[in-house]
Each structure stands twice: as C-alpha cells, then as structure tokens.
C-alpha cells in the first residue's frame, strides 16, 4: 500500500472516530437552547485537537516506516483520484447546504444549524476520502 493511501486511511479513521464521538456524546436535549451553541464550540475544541494530534502522530509514524515515499509528490493518477473524490463530495455538500437553508426558513436554532453544517462537512469529507480510497483499492 502506498504512503499516500495509508495517509488517506488514517484521515478517514480519524474523522470517523473524532466526529463519531462528537455526534454520539453531544447533549442533544439542549440543542434547541442557547447553551447548544457554546456546547458545540466547546466540543469542537477537543475534536480539533484530537484530529491534529492523531494525524501528526500517524503521519510521523508512517513517514518513519516509509522514508523513501515521504517526498514522493502527487502524480497525475493521484490528482485524478483527488478530483473525482472532490467531485463526488460536492453532492452531499450541496444537499446539506440546501437542507440547512430550508431549515433556517423553518426556524431551527443556531446550534441545530451549526450541527447540520458540521455533519454536512463530515459526510462530504468522508465521501471525498472514501472515493479516493476506493479508487486506490481498485487500482484504477
């Protein structure tokens, strides 16, 4: 498995774990209240720190184990995978944004909007990375 593919696996697992914890541990009973926004902000801090720490440690570990591939730049095949991943990620992003727009007119609270936007971003990222991993696995 190529170094770049391993990094994508680490990113995918990190995203799923960090935001899985966020959405699992979030106190949904207060999402409609003003405290929901501060709770979101407060929970995003450890999520962000966890992502940075996990990615840094995993990248360093993989770089030490694969020193020859560390400086390898993205080639045209990597870039084509990246483009396709971004293309497919665009769809959940658009759907999430439109749902959010409609729900704002519906009158949902700030914390609910915020969480919907976070969920949209997370789904889009998972689709982007997942698409790239699928293409790497298929060898296309």
């Amino acid at each position: 498995m190529a170094f770049r593919e391993k990094i994508h696996w680490v990113t995918l697992m990190t995203m799923i774990l960090a935001f899985g914890w966020y959405f699992f541990a979030y106190p949904w009973q207060i999402v409609g209240s003003p405290a929901g926004v501060t709770t979101t902000a407060g929970m995003l801090v450890p999520v962000t720190i966890a992502i940075i720490v996990m990615m840094t440690l995993a990248t360093a570990f993989l770089a030490i184990r694969n020193p020859r591939e560390v400086d390898t730049r993205e080639d045209e095949r990597d870039r084509s995978f990246h483009r396709r991943g971004t293309h497919y990620a665009y769809y959940p992003l658009v759907v999430g944004i439109w749902i959010n727009i409609f729900l704002i007119f519906w009158g949902i609270g700030q914390a609910q909007q915020l969480n919907l936007m976070i969920a949209t971003l997370v789904v889009a990222e998972i689709v982007r990375i997942g698409t790239q991993l699928y293409l790497y696995r298929r060898g296309a």
Partner: peptide
C-alpha cells in the same frame, strides 16, 4: 517518468489510462 510505482503498475495492467 515522474510518476509513482503504483501508477506504472496500473498502466501496465490496463487499469489506468496515462496522459
């Protein structure tokens, strides 16, 4: 050539169409 080993392998196997 300026591509990765994996890209050469994919081209050889007919899985990837190079530029």
């Amino acid at each position: 050539v300026g591509v990765t080993r994996q890209t050469i392998a994919a081209i050889e196997q007919g899985k990837y169409s190079p530029s």
